[in-house]
Design a protein around this nucleic acid. Structure first.
Lengths: 207, 207
DNA sequence: GTCGGCATACCGACCGGTCGGTGTCCAATG
DNA sequence: CATTGGACACCGACCGGTCGGTATGCCGAC
């Protein structure tokens, strides 16, 4: 606190080197995941981040904003990742398998974000909730596009609507947080590959 | 209020014929599903149910109790249903398909309960949460038993751990509430059959 | 001097839960 | 039959505490 130094504004003055907004987001994520959005007070967040409420309200308009920023970051990253995998020039089945496995792995790597998504989205203000939903929908549509591509080419069964399959699969993904434990015997990639296999095999044309 | 009558104690005296605890549970379910547990005040619940706080705390020990009772009811019913389907003397594939489809249908029929499960379980007191988890685990184990039965007989693939498949499937089921709308073009049973097909086909031995 | 980057004290709203009371029914008593 | 007592089902004002948010001030850098 009293440590004299010539820092750029925004740089940490405490023990942590990270910038204040970053630290706030980081600790807010952990606390929201652990206790839920409503049960985490602003006071707790700023204490965990080693700053004060004044600092927080300087960078974020509200507690809601904090949550929204957390979502926005995750969504941006996942969308980026999907886009990169989907547009590669591998065969369709491989692209879909990679997309499926990747989203599982990244969901497990960021279990906290995932948990928050699951539990706290409905606590956002309506307009921000709408923004998040719109972004999520874009993501799902991109994923669905892969399935429809395979249905058109005859690689995948056509008796199941693609959007039902997408919701089926992402339901599983979003729920990873409620059962996956790092202490378990399977790695994130193993789970991802299992999930991808299950999806791909469920999509095989009827034998 | 002033309507004279010879009612048994516990019978409604207002517009609604239902007993007070029942009405409380009913309206609490709706409100919890719509606004979340923490954002629903006891005051709102009792107003919706047309009683007062005194009445509520007469029948329930706490707001937590209300939530717990909602869970307990749903769990009891789903467990009962699964047990009934699983022990019938149909072929295994049919029993599993029926169990899968049924749980989807009942989840859609009671979307509110499902939503609450998803969003508010972690807000229960630790001991009640433990009780709910234990009950849920029993349910999952029963379901898993069906899959293991098929793996042992060679009907299902053995390269996917049964518990992974169970979590995969129930993730999808629990997430129905986040996308299913009654205004959609598919009935609950149609979704249930689609989901059951996807599960069964994902379990086919590799071709 | 003034502007970003905070700190601190404080406010008003609200919330879960409590508690002393009230009306009603029923069963025992006389 | 009339009276009484008390168990049950509720009522609603109130309390201690918490929370999100704000107003104001300080302080170093430019």
């Amino acid at each position: 606190m009293t440590r004299a130094s010539t820092r750029k504004p925004g740089e940490a003055t405490g023990d942590d080197q990270a910038a204040v907004p970053r630290r706030l987001l980081e600790h807010a994520t952990k606390l929201f995941a652990k206790k839920g959005f409503d049960r985490t007070s602003v006071q707790e967040i700023v204490e965990a981040a080693g700053v004060t409420k004044g600092a927080m309200y300087h960078y974020f308009g509200s507690k809601d904003d904090l949550l929204y920023e957390i979502y926005a970051r995750v969504l941006r990253e996942q969308t980026r990742q999907l886009e990169s995998v989907a547009t590669s020039d591998s065969p369709l089945r491989e692209r879909l398998a990679a997309a499926a496995s990747d989203v599982v792995v990244s969901s497990i790597d960021n279990l906290d974000d995932n948990t928050i998504f699951l539990q706290s989205m409905h606590q956002l203000s309506p307009d921000k909730q709408k923004a998040v939903r719109a972004e999520r929908r874009k993501y799902h549509e991109r994923f669905r596009g892969l399935i429809e591509e395979g249905q058109a080419s005859g690689e995948f069964r056509t008796d199941k609507p693609a959007d039902v399959v997408v919701d089926f699969f992402f339901g599983s993904v979003h729920h990873l947080g409620s059962w996956y434990r790092r202490s378990g015997s399977l790695t994130a990639r193993q789970i991802g590959d299992h999930y991808a296999d299950l999806l791909l095999d469920a999509l095989r044309p009827a034998g």
